[in-house]
Amino acid sequence: MEEGYGSGAVKQLSLDLKHEFPDMGLSPRNLWNMKRFYQENAKLPQAVAVLPWGHNLLLLDKIQSSDAVSF
């Protein structure tokens, strides 16, 4: 989870989204993970459709090479 610039906005966004969509996992940490996933895998949007979110997070956390993640 990132602290500093934007963290207050992300916390407020999380609260607002949780109010509108209470059954979705929209914690600040998950929002930062979504941002990180997009930044590292902008060319791979199909990965989100094929793999569950938890598997995508595992790839981000465990594999350092973007080529390995792509594979």
Rank of each mutant, 00 (worst) to 15 (best):
Tyr38Asn: 06
Lys35Thr: 00
Asn30Arg: 12
Asp16Glu: 08
Ser7Ile: 06
Asp67Pro: 03
Leu58Arg: 14
Pro52Cys: 06
Asp61Pro: 01
Pro28Tyr: 07
Met1Trp: 04
Asp61Trp: 05
His19Cys: 03
Glu2Pro: 02
Ala42Arg: 08
Ser27Thr: 10
Gln64Tyr: 08
Phe21Gly: 01
Asn30Gly: 03
Lys62Ile: 09
Leu59Arg: 12
Gln39Thr: 11
Leu15Gly: 12
Met34Ala: 09
Ser66Cys: 11
Leu15Phe: 02
Phe71Pro: 01
Leu51Cys: 10
Lys43Met: 00
Leu58Cys: 13
Val50Met: 06
Ala42Val: 04
Gln64Met: 05
Asp61Arg: 14
Leu58Glu: 04
Gln12Tyr: 12
Phe37Ala: 14
Ala47Thr: 11
Asp23Gly: 12
Phe71Gly: 13
Ala9Pro: 00
Ala49Leu: 15
Gln64Ser: 07
Pro52Asn: 14
Gln46Gly: 06
Ser70Ile: 06
Lys62Arg: 08
Arg36Ala: 12
Leu26Tyr: 07
Trp53Asn: 10
Val50Asn: 03
Leu17Ala: 05
Ser27Pro: 00
Lys35Val: 02
Glu2Cys: 07
Asp16Tyr: 08
Gln39Lys: 12
Asp67Val: 12
Val69Pro: 02
Pro28Asp: 09
Ala47Tyr: 09
Asp23Phe: 04
Glu40Cys: 02
Val69Leu: 09
Phe37Gln: 12
His19Ser: 09
Gln12Trp: 04
Ser7Lys: 09
Ala49His: 10
Leu26Thr: 03
Trp53Thr: 00
Tyr38Met: 09
Arg36Ser: 01
Leu17Ile: 05
Ser7Asn: 11
Met24Val: 14
Arg29Tyr: 00
Gly54Asp: 13
Asn33Glu: 14
Trp32Ser: 05
Gly54Met: 05
Pro52Ile: 04
Pro45Phe: 10
Ala49Arg: 15
Asp16Phe: 06
Ala68Asp: 13
Leu44Ile: 01
